[in-house]
């Protein structure tokens, strides 16, 4: 059994705004083990970025409020820690990669120096050794001619190369946990593929745990060991990547899978779209938050919030459809058809 690195328990985060209290995260639980990748998928406003920022304690207070819950990193709760104590953990034990590499880099400082600064802050090594390490890191993240690039400024790098520099900075202190918040969303597909390969390679070498925030299921299928699907500030389905892609249980997960066209969709058939809009978390709806958009909504969905039902040892879903009294509803046709087609394709390639 692997060791848990991070346990998030019943995390609740609110924001105080002019219009009232926004409940951005409404009771999130998950466990991340050493060396594994957990993908958090969801739409904007689902609370996925708030959750990851909360782990780094990057929620500004006010307007943010840590209303409830615990964030246990190696058994120690991060929530009560002071900013000073947190700054020892940030960058050292937990590092973060953001969507926009340009905002994460200081434009007036040479990239090599930015990497060295992190090393010197967290490790007691002499300067020349920090420099050697920084160059080595640049090489590891696939930047050609690292000795030369070391002395360049961020604007002299292309978008993909900049993200590599950001990853190098994140890895500088050899963190145990890497949080990647949509690190490839701003990049082109070919660059995205390279960055994903790089992250996997790094993980293999260093046994780093990764939390990967994204809304792209293709990226999830590529990266994740386990997946948490978030909707309206809660995790609605949680399981291994195979559980989620081959045996999805929550109608929202069905919707997400169905709305992705693939290269084989005929253009005369309509995409399976989730109708309506995500709820306003100022007034979270009663019962199941997804019910108003759910074509399989049950009467009870509008009354009572469903609990997490256990599907298997690794797989949980928060929907009343899993209750013993619920009618049996199968995964929608188009998704099943696609799964079969993929299976066949995969079989053919063997």
């Amino acid at each position: 059994m692997k060791k848990p690195l991070l346990e998030v328990k019943n995390l609740k985060i609110n924001f105080k705004t002019y219009a009232g209290l926004v409940q951005a995260v409404r009771g999130v639980d998950f466990t991340l083990y050493e060396g594994e990748t957990l993908a958090i998928v969801g739409e904007s406003g689902s609370g996925k970025s708030v959750t990851s920022n909360a782990i780094m304690k990057l929620i500004p207070e006010p307007p943010g409020i840590y209303a409830d819950g615990q964030i246990l990193f190696e058994g120690k709760d991060l929530i009560p820690l002071s900013d000073k104590e947190m700054s020892k953990i940030r960058g050292n034990d937990i590092a973060m990669i953001f969507q926009d590499p340009m905002t994460a880099l200081n434009p007036t400082i040479r990239v090599g120096k930015q990497i060295m600064e992190v090393i010197l802050r967290h490790k007691s090594v002499p300067k020349h050794e920090a420099k050697e390490r920084a160059i080595e890191l640049l090489r590891q993240v696939g930047i050609p001619m690292p000795e030369k690039r070391f002395n360049q400024y961020p604007h002299e790098f292309s978008g993909g190369m900049r993200q590599r520099v950001v990853i190098a900075i994140a890895l500088a202190a050899d963190p145990k946990l890497l949080i990647a918040d949509e690190p490839t969303t701003a990049l082109d597909v070919t660059i995205q593929a390279q960055i994903l390969e790089l992250l996997k390679e790094i993980q293999k070498k260093r046994n780093t745990s990764i939390i990967f925030i994204t809304h792209d299921l293709g990226v999830v299928a590529n990266m994740a060991d386990r997946v948490a699907v978030m909707y309206a500030g809660q995790i609605v389905e949680y399981g291994t990547v195979d559980d989620i892609f081959y045996n999805p249980k929550h109608p929202y997960t069905w919707g997400l899978l169905g709305s992705m066209p693939d290269l084989n969709n005929k253009s005369d058939e309509k995409l399976y779209a989730i109708p309506g809009s995500p709820p306003n978390l100022l007034h979270p709806p009663k019962g199941d938050a997804f019910a108003p958009r759910n074509q399989y909504a049950l009467a009870i969905d509008f009354e009572l919030e469903p609990p997490m039902f256990k599907v298997s040892e690794t797989h949980y879903a928060k929907t009343w459809l899993l209750h013993e009294n619920a009618p049996k509803i199968d995964i929608p046709e188009p998704i099943v058809r696609r799964m079969e087609r993929y299976k066949k394709e995969a079989g053919l390639n063997e």
């Binding site: 074509q295 399989y296 909504a297 009870i300 009354e303």
Partner: peptide
Amino acid sequence: MFRVVGPR
């Protein structure tokens, strides 16, 4: 309570 009523 477990009959399908559909979205709103």
